[in-house]
């Protein structure tokens, strides 16, 4: 396939650009979403939650979000646990996050900055 115009080149760039965005993810104003992936988290379905969040972030075209898996948060009773760290804000900890709730967190909290009050485990959780 020969590239004959800037438009064609830009199309190739777009289609491969997303994965590189993850690697370049350094910089300011990034939202960090941490999914607890201890044994209890995985047993409670954290892997599915993680995948759903990544898919939703991707579907919404958000580029400033890092979805990271972390170890056990210590709230084993409320797994899967998802922690959202918005830039310059205290982190919010959500419990019992299934795939559906994971997608809601992206749509409400990440995009509209609305907290999902019913799912918050502990608002005062100190940022690690």
């Amino acid at each position: 396939m020969k590239v004959k115009s800037m438009e064609e080149l830009k199309r190739i760039r777009e289609s491969h650009g997303k994965s590189l965005g993850m690697r370049k993810g350094e910089g300011e104003n990034r939202i960090i979403v941490k999914v607890g992936m201890g044994t209890c988290g995985i047993a409670a379905g954290a892997r599915e939650t993680l995948r759903a969040i990544i898919e939703e972030v991707d579907a919404q075209g958000m580029k400033n979000v890092d979805v990271i898996q972390v170890g056990c948060n210590g709230y084993c009773h409320s797994e899967p646990i998802v922690e959202v760290v918005m830039p310059d804000e205290d982190s919010i900890l959500y419990g019992h996050v299934d795939e559906e709730k994971g997608r809601m967190i992206v749509k409400k909290h990440l995009m509209e900055n609305q907290l999902l009050q019913d799912s918050i485990v502990n608002e005062t959780f100190e940022r690690a």
């Binding site: 590239v3 800037m6 080149l9 190739i12 760039r13 491969h16 650009g17 994965s19 590189l20 370049k24």
Partner: peptide, 9 residues
């Protein structure tokens, strides 16, 4: 991957 990072632009 090179193109994805603005290669050949």
């Amino acid at each position: 991957e090179y193109i994805a990072n603005e290669g050949y632009m």
